[in-house]
Design a protein around this nucleic acid. Structure first.
Lengths: 233, 233
DNA sequence: GGTGGCCGTCAAGAGTCCGTAAGGCCGGTC
DNA sequence: GACCGGCCTTACGGACTCTTGACGGCCACC
C-alpha cells in the first residue's frame, strides 16, 4: 500500500561493482521492482533527486564520496529508506552509517533472500508511515477519501452506511479494473456469500442514487453484464 | 502509536536468558532509556499492551511462544518498532521474522555498539514518522493540549479521567479520519478488549457530556454507525 | 413472438447498533 | 472504617440498517 501513486516500487541501487549491480538488478526486476542504478555518490544523489526512488540500496565503498556523506546528502531533503551494503564488518562502521541516518546495514557477502526481506521491511515501514495522506480519489461528480472514510458531492458531504462503504471501497481501490461479483461479495460480505449477487444489485443502486448525477445512467459505477462492476474516474 | 512527546524512551526487552537481559538493562539504562523486561512471549504481549513501549527488543528463542507468533501478536494492534535478537544465523529465519513484521534482525553474539545503533535507528524512524503533529488542537468549543494532557472549555479547564483521556487522545491524534471501534478499543484498553464496544458507548457519552455544547447532538465527537468514531474540528 | 436469464427498483419486517441512566465494585485517602 | 472517584456492567427504548421478496424492463437466444 504505497502512498498515493500506484505502480511498482522504485529501487535505486548504488554500487561501483558491476557484478553486484547486475545481481541486484536481476533479482529485483524478477520480483517486480523497478531498478535504477548509479555507480558513484555524485550520480546517486542526482538520481535520487530526479527519480524520487521508494528505497535506496547504498554501497559504502564508492570511488568519489564517503558513504556517510552520501547518507547525509540524502537525509538533507529526503526520508527515503536507505539500506547500506558494505564489505566492512567493523562495528564502528555500522554505527557510523546507522547514526548518519541509514535504516539498515548488511555486510557483504550477503544472502539475497535476507537482503530482499530487509528491503521489504524497509519499504513496508515507509509506506505505512506515509499512509493516510494521499488516499483521495476524485471524479467529475464526487470525491472519495479512503483514509478518512468520507465522500463529498458538489452539494456537501454524503453519508454512507458500512456496507455501502465496503462496496465502494473495494471498487475504488481497484479503480479502472473490473471486479467480479464473486470477488466483491467475498470482500464485503465474506466467503459464504460469494453467490448472493442480489445484494450487489441493491447496494449498487443505493450508491448510484447517492453519488451519480443520473442514477439511471451511471458514469462511474458501471455494470459489466454477466461479469461484475467497475469504478471509473 | 508513539506516546506523545515527553519522557525517556521506553524499551521492552524480551528474552529468557538472564545474562542478556542484564547486559541490555545495564547498557540501556546507562544511556537514559527506561527498560522494561519480560521473559516469555505471553508476558511480553501483556507488557507491551499495558506499558506501550517505544521499541521492543525481542529474542526469538522463547520458552512458550514461537517468535513469529509474538511478532504477529504485536503487529495485530501496534506499529511499535521490533528489533529481533536471535542465535539462529539461518537466513530463512531472518526472512520469516522480517516478513512477519519485524523491523530489524541481529544475530547473537552481537556487538553492543551495533545493537544500540540499530535501536537508535529504529526509534529515530518511528518518532520522525509521528512527527509533524500539532500538540494543541482547537475546536469551536474546546481546546486539547496533547502534550500537557489538558482540555479547556470556554468556562475553564475540564477534568478528564485517564480512560476518558485515552479515548480522546486516540481520536484527536487521527483528527478527521475515521477510527474503527476495534482500533480504538485496542489502543486504549489493549488487544484483548477489541470487541467490548459498549465501553465506547459509555465513554463517548461521558466525553460528550463534558465537551460538547449539545451532548445529544455532537459536532466534534461523531459516531459513524457500524464503523467507528471520528473527531472533527 | 415467446422464454429465460440478468439487472434495476421498491417496500417492509427483522435484526443490529447506539445513547442513556443507574447501580455495584474496587482501590485510594483521610 | 467511612468516603469518594473512577471503572465496569447491565438494561431498555429508539433509530437506523440489512436482508429478503416481489415486480418490471431489457436483451439474447431459441
Amino acid at each position: 500500500m504505497t502512498a498515493g501513486a500506484t505502480g511498482p516500487t522504485r529501487v535505486l541501487v548504488v554500487d561501483d561493482e558491476p557484478q553486484i549491480v547486475r545481481a541486484l538488478r536481476i533479482n529485483l526486476s524478477a520480483r517486480g521492482y523497478q531498478v535504477l542504478t548509479a555507480h558513484d555518490g555524485t550520480s546517486a544523489l542526482k538520481a535520487a533527486a530526479e527519480a524520487k526512488p521508494d528505497v535506496v540500496v547504498l554501497d559504502l565503498g564508492l570511488p568519489d564520496l564517503d558513504g556517510a556523506d552520501v547518507i547525509a546528502g540524502l537525509r538533507g531533503w529526503s526520508t527515503v529508506p536507505i539500506l547500506v551494503l558494505s564489505a566492512r564488518v567493523d562495528s564502528s562502521d555500522k554505527v557510523a552509517a546507522l547514526d548518519a541516518g541509514a535504516d539498515d546495514y548488511v555486510t557483504k557477502p550477503f544472502g539475497m533472500d535476507e537482503l530482499l526481506a530487509r528491503l521489504r521491511a524497509a519499504v513496508r515501514r515507509s509506506s505505512s508511515a506515509a499512509d493516510g495522506e494521499q488516499a483521495v480519489v476524485e471524479t467529475s461528480s464526487f470525491v472519495v477519501d479512503l483514509a478518512a472514510k468520507k465522500v463529498w458531492r458538489d452539494d456537501g458531504e454524503v453519508h454512507l452506511t458500512p456496507t455501502e462503504w465496503g462496496v465502494l471501497e473495494v471498487l475504488v481501490r481497484s479503480r479502472g479494473r473490473l471486479v467480479s461479483q464473486r470477488q466483491l461479495l467475498q470482500d464485503v460480505w465474506g466467503p459464504k456469500y460469494a453467490t448472493e449477487s442480489h445484494y450487489l444489485r441493491v447496494y449498487l443502486a443505493q450508491l448510484r442514487r447517492k453519488l451519480e448525477p443520473e442514477p439511471s445512467r451511471p458514469r462511474h459505477l458501471v455494470t459489466e453484464p454477466g461479469m461484475g462492476y467497475r469504478f471509473e474516474l
